[in-house]
Structure formats: C-alpha cells, structure tokens
Simulated assay, not measured.
Amino acid sequence: MPDYFHGYAVVGLVAVVGVLFVAVAFTAARLLRPVVPTPEKLLTYECGVDPVGEGWAHTQVRYYVYAFLYVIFAVDAVFLFPWATVFAAPGFGGVTLVEMFIFLGFLAVGLLYAWKKGVLTWT
C-alpha cells in the first residue's frame, strides 16, 4: 500500500513546492519593487497614445470569430501530431484511426455550421 500512495505524495510535494515558489516570488517582488506613484503612472496606457475621448468603442465581432476559428484549428493541430506518432505504434492503428476521424468529424460539423451561418464571409 505505501507504493500506491508514493506517486500521489510526489505529485502533492511538487504542487506544494510550486505554490511556495510562486508565493515567494510574488512576495519578493512586492518587497523589492519601488513604490513611487505619479500622476503619469496612474493614467490609462493605450499603446503609447494618450487616452482621448470616451472609453466606449465599437468593435467588429467577426474578428473574434476568426480568432476563435484559428484557436479551434490550432487545437486540432496539437491533437494531430501526437496522434500521428501513436498511429504508427503496433496495436493502435485501427482504434486511433477511428478516434481521429470522429474528432475530425466534430470539427468538420462545426466548420460546416459556421459556413452555413455565413460567419466565414468577409464583408
């Protein structure tokens, strides 16, 4: 039974050390940084341009849709590379092929839905 919990103890110890490392880093940064607030530091920073006008701005939602579609296909690529390495291993060929076609099918249905809704038109 001790061997069973040894793996969990290692994971728990690594998690505790990680949390302590982050806590020590944030505490050291707070203690070592200079605190000299000036009116310039308290202004809103907009890419080097002084803020002018209201804080309300209209943005096009379609740009977010394209960004979201990019993220979907980037995740797809992240899953395809490990799949390609496992697919070549003996005993995994048929099962992994079916699983990947199911995964790609879900992505294709999502892409077809976006295309049918007219999201992919640039107008």
Rank of each mutant, 00 (worst) to 15 (best):
M1T: 04
D3I: 08
D3Y: 00
F5Y: 15
F5K: 10
F5S: 10
G7M: 05
G7A: 05
A9P: 00
V10F: 02
V11G: 03
V11T: 12
G12A: 09
L13Q: 10
L13G: 15
L13V: 04
V14C: 08
V16C: 02
V17K: 02
V19M: 10
L20I: 01
A23W: 13
V24C: 06
V24F: 14
V24G: 10
A25D: 11
A25V: 11
A29H: 09
A29I: 02
R30Q: 09
L31R: 13
L32S: 11
R33I: 08
R33G: 09
P34R: 11
P34C: 00
P37E: 09
P37L: 08
T38C: 02
T38S: 10
P39E: 07
P39Y: 05
E40R: 14
K41I: 03
L42C: 08
L43R: 15
L43F: 06
T44K: 05
T44V: 09
Y45M: 06
C47P: 01
C47R: 15
C47I: 01
V49N: 11
V49G: 05
V49T: 11
G53L: 04
G53M: 03
G53I: 07
E54G: 15
E54F: 00
G55E: 10
W56F: 09
W56K: 11
W56Q: 14
A57C: 09
H58N: 14
T59F: 14
R62K: 12
Y63L: 07
Y63G: 10
V65E: 05
Y66G: 03
Y66L: 06
F68S: 05
L69Y: 05
Y70Q: 08
Y70P: 00
V71I: 08
F73E: 10
A74L: 12
A74F: 09
V75E: 09
V75W: 03
D76N: 14
V78M: 04
F81S: 11
P82M: 03
P82S: 05
P82Y: 02
W83Y: 06
T85F: 06
T85P: 00
V86C: 04
F87A: 03
A88I: 04
A89I: 04
A89N: 13
P90R: 14
F92M: 06
F92W: 09
G93D: 13
V95W: 06
T96R: 05
V98Q: 08
E99H: 08
M100N: 02
F103Q: 02
F103L: 08
F106P: 07
F106G: 10
V109R: 07
L111M: 08
L111I: 04
L111H: 04
L112S: 12
Y113I: 00
Y113K: 01
Y113E: 03
Y113L: 09
W115Y: 13
W115G: 01
K117T: 02
L120P: 00
L120S: 04
T121F: 01
W122H: 06
W122D: 12
T123Q: 13
